[in-house]
Computed example of a mutant assay.
Amino acid sequence: MSGQVFSTDIPVSEPLRVAEDWIDLYGHMNMVRYVGVFDDVGYRLLDRWGLGESYTHETKHGLFVVDVAVNYRKEMTVGTMLTLSLRVLEADGKRLLSLMELRRTDDGTLAATMEQLSIHVDLTTRRVVPFPEPVVLRLRALAEAHARTPLPAGHKRRLECRAP
């Protein structure tokens, strides 16, 4: 992994379509489906930085989510096309704070955001461990690069990358 070159661009998913089974009693995308999309697609986007499924299989380490802050901004209905982007807000030796943005593909409207604080865990001991140095350096470079892109209008940071 250390020999790989990773882009510092903010990755964006392939388009997703709001499925009929994502719709709730009120005729819009259920809140749990927003979080499900953030989790599933966000995890796949982590692969672009070498922290997804292959990292976990190769190192027996992974990211456990310890806190999230979701902001629902726009009602989504069946058939709506969306994309998800993922950026690094902060990272330290054991923690990663990221921001995911779910947007409509037709007009770029922000549908929801989710800040996510994760910890780096050794899956054999189930204990928090430091990221390997190349990973820390990569995450810090990503945070610096992503800080050049303004946060979504009206977004107020709610989580911090620090121990509770």
Rank of each mutant, 00 (worst) to 15 (best):
A69S: 15
P132Y: 03
Y43I: 02
F38M: 10
T56L: 11
D9F: 01
V5F: 01
F131L: 05
E75I: 12
T113C: 07
E58G: 04
V135S: 02
V37N: 01
M1N: 10
G79T: 06
T149N: 08
T149C: 06
I23H: 09
G108V: 08
D107A: 12
A19P: 01
F38Q: 02
R87A: 12
A147F: 10
Q4G: 05
A19T: 05
G50P: 09
L110C: 11
Y55S: 00
A143S: 12
L99N: 02
L137V: 07
F38I: 04
L123E: 12
F131P: 02
T77Y: 14
R126D: 11
M31G: 13
A141Y: 13
R104C: 14
T83G: 11
E20A: 13
Q4L: 14
A69H: 15
N71A: 13
E75H: 07
G108N: 11
T124F: 10
D39W: 02
V37Y: 05
V5K: 07
S54G: 03
E115T: 05
M29E: 05
S2E: 10
I119M: 13
V65E: 12
G154V: 08
V37F: 07
M31S: 14
D39P: 00
T105M: 10
M1T: 09
W49Q: 01
V128P: 07
R157V: 11
G79C: 06
P134K: 01
